[in-house]
């Protein structure tokens, strides 16, 4: 269970969100400029809220009043930004391996196998795994980005417009696949999208953000 209460002034936009999500993914909907991406960035810790409190399964990640601000790299959140943001100088497998190298829980020689296994589970074959992001299809890139996020064994997932860059046909397949994967994972997940159909397919719960505030929620 993740609870998020954040306030932050961003230029003209007064962001003030209050979200709770746990067993089922929460979809955060809203037009562009409504504060969705900023909300995600504040949860990851790269953007500092003016006020608020973030709690993940009983661990406080941020609390202005208590002076708690867990550094980004210690929050253990899987973040998939818009357009996947794969590391372009690394192959798909090396992108996933980067996360395994950082966590260091596996022995060095097991990491490649684990990276390939993670990619395989998300439908990326060994052939695609050896390619650089520029040589992958849009759908493959999203899967690699998700595999990379999962490799760090996150305690929650944050997905920013995971389907927006895809063409309609790929979009349907990836959407179904993503919905299925999220159901299997069962960790608190927040999905940001501005597309109604995506919202309905991915989330049991939908919150709507408008002008920096949640106007409709679960």
């Amino acid at each position: 269970m993740m609870t998020v209460r954040l306030k932050r002034q961003l230029g003209a936009l007064a962001l003030d969100v209050d979200l709770r999500f746990g067993d089922a993914p929460l979809v955060l909907c809203g037009a562009s400029g409504s504060g969705k991406t900023s909300t995600l960035r504040m949860i990851t810790g790269v953007l500092r809220p003016d006020m608020g409190h973030i709690d993940l399964d009983g661990t406080v990640l941020f609390d202005r009043d208590a002076g708690v601000d867990v550094p980004v790299e210690e929050r253990r959140l899987g973040y998939v930004p818009q357009d996947a943001a794969l590391f372009p100088h690394l192959s798909a497998r090396e992108n996933v391996r980067f996360a395994l190298d950082v966590s260091g829980t596996l022995a060095r020689r097991e990491r490649n196998a684990r990276a390939l296994q993670l990619l395989g589970e998300l439908g990326v074959g060994p052939d695609a795994a050896s390619r650089r992001p520029a040589e992958l299809s849009g759908g493959e890139r999203q899967r690699v980005a998700l595999a990379r996020a999962l490799a760090s064994e996150p305690r929650a997932l944050l997905l920013d417009e995971p389907l927006s860059a895809l063409d309609p046909a790929t979009r349907q397949t990836v959407r179904a696949f993503l919905a299925q994967t999220l159901q299997r994972l069962r960790i608190p997940t927040l999905v940001v999208t501005h597309d109604r159909e995506d919202a309905e397919a991915l989330g049991a719960q939908v919150a709507v953000l408008e002008g920096g505030r949640v106007v409709a929620g679960p």
Binding site: E73, P81, A85, V102
Partner: peptide, 27 residues
């Protein structure tokens, strides 16, 4: 260098020096 890439690297647990040497510098 696209900023989201650097943010992702941090969320994966990489310290700022690691992000610099493994991601920013090669790019």
């Amino acid at each position: 260098i696209d900023e989201p890439m650097l943010i992702v690297a941090r969320t994966l647990g990489a310290s700022p020096p690691r992000v610099f040497f493994r991601i920013a510098l090669p790019l």
